[in-house]
């Protein structure tokens, strides 16, 4: 039983990171109908930028949690600007081109990010310091939960609640949803769709930046090509939840995290990835719209 509880705790932690990253994929897909394959590498870039900023600022703060929060905020700003530039340079000129062109452009942008990380930080892995978060542990019978896991779970939870409120309860959120449904109709409401797309990229990059730093803090080791693996997992999570659907990405992320860690706990961790893809194939066969992807039919 303790294995189960332990794997659920681990699964929820990694699942909420997947969810944060998956939101970036799903929000861009929702409005622009293409997969931003550069998102994973942007997440990797966030992990590196975050680590560099943390090591620069950490000596100025007595409390490492404050140092982490400060680095997180600076990283978010930097990555949001890069996300904006990505949209501006790689996607906006292709707004009217076939979606395949935008996907190819995204793959290219991903390579640019990956190689940029390698050129700046080198091909060898970097490590988040072991003491970045005080190494506190709580016991539940035989299972343990660490302070870093609690921090990741809480922060992810509040960020996702914030996003949910923004999208569902505010004027800007209504505009985001309208632009996702039909851009021309949104323009006829007086919505500046270009501005909405910028907001979406900034939001997606913000969530990705948080996800990237969490990955570094949780696993410690980061490599220039880590974006591809985590990116694909988060992308699968977005599909499982129903691509284009915001609560779906949150749910899909948590679900995939739990699934992964239970497979790792009960079957084999080397097979966890294989089972992820088996799950993806099954979802695509039996419920291609994902868990929450069901849409009301548009009547003509």
């Amino acid at each position: 039983m303790y294995i189960f509880i332990q794997q659920v705790i681990n699964g929820l932690t990694i699942g909420s990171i997947f969810a944060l990253i998956a939101l970036g994929y799903t929000m861009v897909y929702g409005t622009m109908k293409f997969i931003n394959f550069a998102h994973g590498d942007l997440v990797a870039l966030s992990a590196f930028v975050g680590l560099t900023i943390y090591t620069t600022v950490v000596s100025s703060f007595s409390n490492s949690i404050i140092a982490i929060l400060i680095s997180l905020i600076i990283t978010i700003v930097i990555i949001s600007i890069i996300g904006y530039l990505l949209e501006r340079i790689a996607y906006r000129p292709l707004r009217k081109a076939p979606r395949l062109s935008a996907v190819v452009s995204a793959l290219g942008a991903g390579m640019v990010f990956q190689n940029a990380i390698m050129l700046i930080w080198g091909p060898n892995p970097h490590y988040y310091p072991a003491d970045i978060i005080p190494n506190k542990i709580w016991h539940f019978g035989d299972s343990v939960i660490s302070l870093i896991q609690i921090l990741i779970l809480l922060l992810s939870f509040f960020i996702m609640i914030g996003l949910y409120i923004l999208v569902n309860k505010t004027r800007t959120g209504r505009a985001i949803r309208a632009a996702a449904i039909n851009q021309d109709a949104a323009r006829l409401m007086g919505i500046n769709v270009d501005a909405i797309i910028v907001i979406i990229f900034a939001l997606g990059s913000t969530l990705g930046a948080v996800g990237g730093m969490f990955l570094g803090m949780f696993y410690r080791g980061i490599t220039f090509n880590m974006g591809w693996n985590y990116g694909i997992s988060a992308f699968v999570a977005a599909i499982i939840g129903g691509i284009g659907n915001i609560p779906g990405a949150m749910l899909g992320g948590i679900f995939l995290g739990l699934f992964n860690s239970l497979i790792a706990g009960y079957i084999s961790s080397t097979w966890a990835d294989a089972f992820t893809y088996i799950l993806l194939i099954l979802i695509l066969i039996f419920k291609p719209t994902g868990i929450l992807g069901e849409r009301v039919a548009e009547k003509v």
């Binding site: 505009a175 309208a178 039909n182 109709a185 006829l188 409401m189 007086g190 919505i191």
Partner: peptide
């Protein structure tokens, strides 16, 4: 739109996955 020209487009283009009331609120976006 803020200049005072509003359109009900061909094919209606209502926001299908949003409630009727929120569709109206979107109409007042400007």
């Amino acid at each position: 739109v803020p200049l005072g020209i509003s359109q009900s487009p061909e094919g209606r283009l209502v926001f299908g996955t949003i409630t009727v009331e929120n569709n109206l609120k979107l109409g007042a976006y400007s």
